[in-house]
């Protein structure tokens, strides 16, 4: 089991989480994830996740023109996205707690 496998299940949640306080464009979101410690996340994964969340109606987009360089497509959480973030966040916390307890019971150090 490596981080990539784990990421698959929680990348949605991670992307929704980094968009909670501030809208962001693709590369910006990737950078936030990496800064948060998810070093192994790939650009295609983030791009694909954004497309999927957008198609699922959890994100809205808008384009911001820039003087130097290309226009940037910003993603923002909508109400459904915030809702999803809350629910997925709770689910993850309970799951993580369960896993922690399971490992603790068997004396495995963190």
């Amino acid at each position: 089991m490596d981080t990539t496998q784990l990421l698959k299940g929680v990348l949605d949640l991670a992307v929704l989480a980094v968009l909670r306080d501030e809208d962001g464009y693709g590369y910006d979101i990737l950078r936030r994830l990496r800064e948060a410690g998810l070093d192994e996340v790939g650009d295609a994964s983030v791009y694909g996740t954004l497309r999927r969340l957008f198609a699922a109606g959890l994100l809205t987009t808008y384009v911001v023109p820039s003087e130097a360089g290309p226009h940037r497509k910003y993603y923002a959480l909508n109400a459904a996205g915030r809702d999803q973030l809350t629910r997925s966040g709770k689910l993850w916390r309970s799951f993580a707690t369960t896993m922690d307890a399971l490992l603790d019971d068997r004396g495995l150090a963190a």
Binding site: Y27, R31, D43, A44, S45, G48, T49, G69, P70
Partner: peptide, 29 residues
């Protein structure tokens, strides 16, 4: 284009081969 604007180097250098990119995209989407 956004990615290209962020740093130097060719796309393949930074993102890997398009085929690998496509495979990752597939998984994520």
């Amino acid at each position: 284009a956004e990615v290209a604007a962020e740093a130097d180097g060719s796309l393949v250098e930074r993102l890997g081969e398009p085929e690998a990119y496509a495979a990752e995209l597939r998984g994520a989407a």
